[in-house]
Simulated scan of single mutants.
Amino acid sequence: MIQLRGHHLFCLLGYRGMGYSKEYVVNMTKLHQRLREYPDTVVELVEGPDQLCEKYPNSGEYHCKDQNIYVRDAVILEKLGLKLGEVLPWHDIEHRVKDFVIPSDIQTVCETCNWRSYGVCEEGIQHIIDGKGLWEVK
Rank of each mutant, 00 (worst) to 15 (best):
M1L: 08
H8D: 00
C11E: 00
L12S: 06
L12M: 15
L13W: 07
Y15A: 01
M18Q: 12
M18R: 14
M18K: 14
G19A: 08
Y20H: 04
Y20M: 13
S21M: 08
K22Q: 14
T29N: 14
Q33V: 05
R34H: 10
R34N: 13
R34E: 13
L35A: 10
E37Q: 12
P39V: 09
D40F: 08
V43R: 02
V43L: 13
V46A: 07
E47K: 13
Q51S: 02
L52D: 00
K55A: 05
Y56M: 11
Y56L: 02
P57Q: 08
P57Y: 08
N58Y: 13
S59T: 15
E61A: 06
E61P: 03
N68H: 08
I69V: 15
D73M: 12
A74C: 07
V75Y: 05
E78A: 14
K79S: 12
K79C: 10
L82E: 01
L84R: 09
L88M: 03
H91A: 01
I93V: 15
H95N: 10
V97P: 02
K98A: 13
K98L: 05
K98P: 04
D99H: 01
F100S: 12
P103G: 06
S104Q: 13
I106S: 01
E111W: 11
T112S: 14
W115R: 15
G119I: 11
E122N: 03
E123W: 00
E123L: 10
G124L: 04
H127Q: 09
I128P: 04
I129P: 08
G131L: 11
K132M: 11
G133L: 08
W135M: 13
W135K: 15
V137C: 11
K138G: 12
